[in-house]
Design a binder for these strands. Sequence first.
DNA 1: ATCAAATTTCAAAGATTACTGAAAATTCAA
DNA 2: TTGAATTTTCAGTAATCTTTGAAATTTGAT
Lengths: 189, 189
Amino acid sequence: MKLTPLIQSFVLHFGEMGSRWGINRTVGQIYALLFVSEKPLNADEMAEALGFSRSNVSMGLKELESWRLVKLQHFPGDRREYYSTPEDVWAIFQTLAEERRKREVEPTLTMLRGALMEEPGNDAERYAQARMAEMHGLIDLVTSWFSDIQKLDVETLEKLMKLGAQVQKFLLFTQKLPFIGQDAARKEE
Amino acid sequence: MKLTPLIQSFVLHFGEMGSRWGINRTVGQIYALLFVSEKPLNADEMAEALGFSRSNVSMGLKELESWRLVKLQHFPGDRREYYSTPEDVWAIFQTLAEERRKREVEPTLTMLRGALMEEPGNDAERYAQARMAEMHGLIDLVTSWFSDIQKLDVETLEKLMKLGAQVQKFLLFTQKLPFIGQDAARKEE
DNA sequence: ATCAAATTTCAAAGATTACTGAAAATTCAA
DNA sequence: TTGAATTTTCAGTAATCTTTGAAATTTGAT
C-alpha cells in the first residue's frame, strides 16, 4: 500500500505531534494510519506503508495496546493480526484522557499527598508545602470534575460544550434554588 | 542553596513528568524549583541548587519564558535577573493551556482544514477525509469550549467544577426554557 | 568610553531514545 | 507433534536530544 499525499501529510503531522507529547514518532504515525484507514491493517501492511521495519511496528502496536487505543481482530482463514481504531472519536478521547490520568496525574497526586504529610523542617519547607497544597487542590479539582463530566453521555456532553460560558447563567440561577444548591455543595469542605 | 529531601523529591518528580510531556528534564526541574520557592531566584542559585551548568539553566529559562511561565524581576543594587512563577495556580494552568493550544492544537486544526479542502482522489481518501472531519469537529468543539470556560472568573469556575456532572440537571432544565435554549443553540449549525 | 559582572551562544561531548535485523518464541493448521 | 507462518525479543547501531565549557555578547555602573 502506497500512501497518497493527503494521507501522508496527516500521518506525518501526527508523528511530529506525538514527539512533542512524549510519544514516539513511530507510534504516532501508526496510530494516524489506523485512524484514517477504512479497514483494519496487519503489521506488514503498516510497515510497508510507513517505511518502518516489521519489528518497529510490532513495538509500536504493543505500546498502543498498552494505551488501549487500538482494537485487535482476526479474519477467517488469515492468521495475521489486524488492528483498527475505535470509530467513535469521543471514545478515543476518553480513553486517552483516562490513561493519562492513570499514568501521570495519579502518581503526581500521590507524590504531593506524601509531601504534604511530612512535618515541615523549616520555613522553606512550610512555604513549599503551601504551594504543593495549592497545586494538589487544582489538579484534584480539575481531574475529578473531568471524570464527572466523562460520565455524561456524548449527546449531553456536546450540548454542554456548545453551551460554553453560558453555563454561568445557570450557575447564578442555582444559588437561588436550595434543593439544587445542596447537591452542588456536596464537595465543599 | 541545598535542597531539602521534601523539595528535592518534588523537583525530581517534575523533571520526570516533564520528559513524559515532551518538556526536557532541566526545564521541568527549574520550573518546579521556582514554583515552591518563596522568593525569586537568579540563575546561579538555580544552577547550584539543581546541579546543572549555568548555561543549561540559561537555556531552560529561555524556554520557560517562551511559554510565559516565569516572571522576571530585578532588585535594587543587584544586576542579576531574578525569576519566579505567578502565585495564582489557576493563572498558571490557563497560560499553559493557552500556549499548548497555540503550539499544538491550532497547527493541527490548520492541517486538518487543509486536508479537508482537497478533492478526494479515491475511496481511501474519501474515507480518510471523513475521519479527519470527525477529528476536526471534536478538537474544535473541545478547544472552543475550553476557551469559553477560561473566560469565567476563577470563583465561578470552581463552583462549576464542584458541581460536576450535576450540571446535567440544568441542561435538561434549559431545554424547557426557550429564551435560554436560544442562546444555547448559538453554535448549532 | 571602559570594564567587570552577567547572560547567551554554540560546537562538541555525553546520554538517551529509536530503530533494525537476526534469532527466538509463539501460534495454529495439518 | 511437526513445521511454516507470524509475532516478539533483544543486542547493536543510528539518530536525536541534552548538557557542558569556553568564547562572545550584552549590560550597566563608574
